[in-house]
Design a protein around this nucleic acid. Structure first.
Length: 754
RNA sequence: GGCCGAUUAGCUCAGUUGGUCAGAGCGUCCGGUUUACAUCCGGAAGGCCGGGGGUUCGAGACCCUCAUCGGCCACCA
């Protein structure tokens, strides 16, 4: 044994040993208790970061349960990660001076596919480096045909049961990403803007968005507002275009704010949209999907809203309609991905009715069928579920499964189409205007995107001909599913659930579902955990997991979340190469309170590396002593038992302390206090066993005292077992040297108190 | 506006149900090396556990309140 433990010399070999032994392959064994965990699927194009390294917690649980004798399955996979991946890919394209609009959707899809394939393998290798005991034989990728088939069936089931519908709504649209988002994907930031007071004839209004006055359809005041009592039902005049609009009363208007009169612009503001609906007001848009002004005075037409604002206020000022302008700090929605302003725009989208799904997800948690740890997150979960709104599942991106809906062009001639013609030139227009000049095949082959009117008819199965007109010119919806629509069904699809006929689900599903633990970061509690709960209960009538374990978030030394854009990412793989995977893993759990932030510091990783070395050297001492004594023949060193002859007071004490440690660590793991569990083992091995007992034992080792060798070996092997879930590589390396049972520490039994 | 965290040694943080809980790592200081480990061993300095009030025989730990920092949710034009 070398005097200093060198992780790089051992880790790869050890992982190969595990893989060769098939120890991580989940087995359906009716005699055993299943313990299953689904890995939160990393993005296929994402290099590993500290968040992935935190899968250590799941590995601890899996290894612990494997040693308890449960039938463990930890199922890995990776996600195509729709918008994330397309965003990264588009950045790459733009570096090459290209954009997505240079390609038809099929070509673009293939390009991204290849791009992702290059990175997918890397991810897998990295997780092996961290020692994760994942069942690679059950690895899944989110775009596998079988996974897609199931989610399409889910869509059809939802559709058939009236839980999915198309609706024309004000949606969160990012004109830079070119897609709508669900409300969860909108970030809110505080910004300094101005509140403009404008003359609307009979009254004055205050607005932060003067460029949208052209889309005004009313002015609303609070019904209780004495100031405006007499004006309700009268008219106001939109300046610049001198449009007459009604003055209405709505309690959503706050009396004290601005002038107390609110211009109603249903097409570009969510509150206004709701008010408009209540009063049956028309909806009129002045910003298009490219984020440019339309249906406005010539000077403003074609400008971006920001430019349009300046121009509009300039014109207003000239006409004396801009009364004053005061600074205002307010919150605005920005795209979580590109950080540009979100435009609420009116457009048809696909929605899932979430209320009925959420009702079951609420009840399941309330009844404790799924528990949430730490418990305080239960309230967060319930608050969200109880206030859930319909879920926009359509995205105007191409990287993802297309929604299985087909429109007949002959029945829906108003469909808007963007495509590349046979010369590669981008053509946009309404089908009825295009059909004279372009054959259907040309449109279909060069198709980039289509937008069907909200009332357009469609079918959800791919037919050769239209069921109503028998025509054969059908185009599939170009919107793709929100990534979470797919990953929300991950525990079902990866285990082989059959949506159409649950009875025909795979044996894996029947044995391993519901899974035992879902360990994840709180920031995807709604995105993912919530959706998995809804889908699991809706499709399989059973919760997807019995426990949601919310783990900590890794932050830098300033307490900031690590992200590529901030440039503060600490590379776990680099740390692994420098100090070993065990050291990194231990540093991520040691002394960490449940769900509190983890500050990663190289110092701490180094300290854990030192601990690994201590564990190694204890082994080196014991092995050296045994070899030197000439007792290496195991016949001569009796295996330990409490009533063996020659035990000293110190022997009995260390064994008693070992047993207390076993009890305590087991208890702490059961309660998910991994931080304390790690500390307890560390403390025992280093400061109790090494510093005290081993120092004491040296005298007796010299005298070749058989009992002391038994105790040393017994305490050491038990310690390796306790430490194994946390530091699997080094403990396995040592186990291979010391244990008579050479199979693997991975499948040895968790120590028990006699 | 609603909700949730955090505030403990110079730094970063533990302290699970109230009673050797005033701790760890790093840093600092003193001492130690003829072979398990200097990625080590022994020892030391350093905190009235954010302020105030309360419950209790007893409180970092429970309750109230205030302050500061951070986060989440929410339609303030």
């Amino acid at each position: 044994m070398e005097p200093v433990y060198e992780p790089l010399k051992h880790e790869q070999k050890i992982y190969e040993l595990w893989e060769k032994g098939g120890f991580f392959t989940g087995k359906i064994d009716k005699e055993k208790k299943p313990f299953s965990v689904i890995l939160p699927l990393p993005n296929a194009n994402d290099p590993m970061h500290m968040g992935h390294a935190l899968f250590t917690i799941q590995d601890i649980l899996c290894r612990y349960h494997r040693m308890l004798g449960d039938s463990v399955l930890w199922l890995p996979g990776s996600d195509h990660a729709g918008i994330e991946t397309q965003f990264v890919f588009e950045k790459k394209l733009s570096k090459e001076g290209k954009s997505r609009f240079d390609f038809d959707r099929n070509t673009l899809f293939k390009m991204i596919w290849d791009f992702v394939e290059e990175n997918r393998e890397i991810n897998i290798e990295q997780m092996k480096k961290l020692g994760f005991s994942l069942d690679w034989t059950r690895y899944h990728y989110s775009l596998e045909p079988e996974i897609l088939k199931q989610i399409f069936d889910t869509f059809r089931k939802l559709h058939k049961e009236g839980l999915v519908y198309r609706g024309e709504r004000l949606v969160n649209y990012c004109t830079f990403c070119g897609t709508a988002f669900s409300d969860l994907e909108v970030d809110h930031v505080e910004r300094d803007d101005f509140l403009y007071y404008l003359d609307y004839g009979s009254l004055q209004i205050a607005t932060t968005r003067p460029e949208t006055i052209f889309a005004d359809v009313a002015v609303a005041v609070n019904p209780e507002d004495k100031k405006y009592e007499n004006l309700i039902g009268k008219k106001a005049i939109v300046p610049l275009i001198n449009k007459e609009i009604p003055i209405i009363a709505d309690s959503a208007v706050e009396k004290g704010f601005g002038t107390g009169a609110l211009k109603i612009t249903p097409a570009h503001d969510p509150v206004d949209f709701e008010i408009g609906k209540r009063h049956n007001l028309p909806v009129f848009s002045v910003i298009d999907l490219n984020g440019k002004m339309i249906n406005v005075p010539n000077e403003i037409e074609g400008l971006y809203p920001k430019q349009a604002r300046n121009k509009t206020t300039e014109l207003l000022e000239k006409e004396g309609k801009l009364l004053k302008k005061e600074p205002l700090r307010h919150t605005v929605g920005i795209c979580y991905r590109c950080k540009n302003l979100i435009e609420p725009l009116l457009m048809p989208q696909w929605f899932v009715k979430t209320k009925p799904l959420a009702a079951e997800a609420i009840e399941a948690v309330k009844k404790g069928k799924t528990k949430i740890f730490p418990p305080r997150f239960k309230k967060v979960y319930l608050d969200w579920m109880e206030n859930i709104i319909d879920w926009n599942i359509s995205r105007q991106i191409i990287w993802g499964p297309q929604i299985p809906a087909w429109y007949c062009l002959d029945c829906n001639q108003e469909i808007k189409i963007n495509f590349l013609d046979k010369n590669g030139k981008l053509v946009s227009g309404i089908y009825k205007n295009l059909k004279e000049n372009y054959p259907f095949e040309e449109i279909k082959n060069g198709l980039q995107s289509l937008t069907a009117p909200v009332e357009a008819s469609y079918v959800t199965e791919e037919n050769k001909s239209c069921p109503s007109c028998q025509g054969s010119r059908l185009l599939q919806e170009t919107d793709t599913f929100d990534t979470w629509f797919l990953s929300g069904q991950w525990p079902l699809t990866t285990l082989g659930f059959n949506v159409k006929d649950p009875e025909k689900s795979a044996p894996d599903f029947k044995y391993f579902y519901p899974t035992s633990v879902m360990d994840t970061l709180w920031d995807i509690l709604f995105f993912w955990v919530g959706r998995m709960m809804m889908f699991g209960l809706y499709l399989a009538e059973e919760v997807p997991f019995k426990l949601v374990h919310i783990h900590a978030r890794v932050v830098d030394k300033f307490g900031q979340k690590m992200s590529k854009s901030k440039g503060n990412v600490v590379d776990p793989i680099l740390m692994t190469e420098k100090y070993g995977a065990d050291a990194l893993r231990m540093s991520l759990v040691y002394g960490i309170a449940p769900a509190s932030d983890i500050v990663v510091s190289e110092e701490k990783i180094k300290a854990m590396r030192n601990f690994a070395n201590k564990v190694w050297n204890i082994g080196r001492f014991i092995k050296g002593s045994i070899d030197e004594s000439g007792l290496s023949d195991k016949e001569k060193i009796p295996s330990f038992s409490k009533d063996m002859a020659g035990l000293s007071k110190e022997d009995r004490e260390i064994v008693k302390d070992l047993e207390e440690t076993i009890k305590k660590v087991t208890d702490l793991i059961e309660k998910y206090h991994f931080g304390l569990a790690a500390e307890t083992i560390y403390e025992f091995i280093w400061h109790r066993f090494a510093d005290q007992y081993i120092e004491y034992s040296k005298e007796r080792v010299k005298n070749k005292d058989l009992a002391v060798f038994s105790v040393l070996r017994h305490v050491y092997l038990s310690s390796l077992k306790l430490l194994h879930p946390f530091m699997p590589f080094i403990t396995e390396s040592l186990w291979q040297i010391f244990s008579e049972d050479k199979e693997s520490l991975t499948v040895s039994s968790w120590p028990k108190v006699q």
